[in-house]
Design a protein around this nucleic acid. Structure first.
Ligand SMILES: [Zn+2]
Ligand SMILES: [Zn+2]
Ligand SMILES: [Zn+2]
Ligand SMILES: [Zn+2]
Lengths: 137, 137
DNA sequence: GCTTGACCCTGTAGCAGCTACAGGGTGCAT
DNA sequence: ATGCACCCTGTAGCTGCTACAGGGTCAAGC
């Protein structure tokens, strides 16, 4: 299949596919006489794996390792678990960071009573962290 | 004060300060005979405003508007509220996205029983979204 | 046979928000 | 005089794409 068909089949942009090839994440396929990329089903499943992993938030580097593991069935899968657990930890850290952020923003935006910019408590709070209740790491 | 002192005073990297100047977020200060940047207290409070806003997750563009408003005390502060509310909405959207992600990751990583890569349910799930319970937009 | 349009190619630059040099100058202490 | 900390400019890198510009290819319809 040509790149456009693969793109549709995997719900990926054509340029993203070429990008993955450029960075060595997706192996270079054969070419037609007109120099068009011609993919086979193995490319398709590999790209699906990549896209699905991306949707789950794994980095390109994580995906490289995961693909490597998928290519070596005889290896121990501990690394896959490590990667997933570490990623999960990062997601949880982000959630808690954003949650604290949200609480602060709710508080800040609740202080605006309308009126002149000079009296606005939103702007006042941005100018002076003393108005905040928590640190923001 | 010189750039290094301003950096310490506002807990900002020197290079970040120069970056803000380059993109026109922080106005260019005067220079010493040796061509060193010399800042005054107004630069300091402006930079504090910027850093605090960044810590609260506002984009550079948002901060431009907020600074503009802070510079014009006679204006209506509605825009500050708009920006904050919109930003809050985006933070909430991110939280809910990450929360769904986390739930899926917990489920996925819980399926790994150790052993060979060929039997690993983590890798199996990445290869086939059919094992997932939800969509991932 | 000639045009139109949809596809394909390469290569490069842009997004956000910094961060990290390289390669040089300045200021003060020992 | 020499060392060291600091400052300068300019440019390139990070992540994960996305968006061209400027060209080639192929099938359909006239
Ligand atoms: Zn207000
Ligand atoms: Zn604060
Ligand atoms: Zn496993
Ligand atoms: Zn899935």
């Amino acid at each position: 299949m040509k790149i456009g068909e693969l793109a549709k089949a995997t719900d990926t942009q054509v340029e993203t596919i070429r990008y993955y090839e450029r960075i060595g994440l997706l192996s270079a396929p054969g070419r037609s006489a007109a120099n068009y990329r011609i993919y086979d089903p193995s490319h398709r499943s590999r790209l699906s794996f990549i896209r699905h992993s991306r949707q789950l938030g794994f980095t390109i580097d994580d995906i490289r390792s995961l693909l490597d593991l998928a290519d070596h069935p005889e290896r121990d899968c501990a690394e896959a678990d490590n990667i997933t657990t570490r990623h999960l930890g990062q997601v949880e850290a982000k959630i808690s960071h954003l949650t604290r952020l949200r609480d602060e923003l709710v508080r800040v935006s609740g202080r605006c009573r309308g009126g002149l910019s000079s009296d606005c408590q939103v702007i006042e709070t941005l100018a002076d962290h003393g108005h905040c209740t928590a640190k923001h790491e």
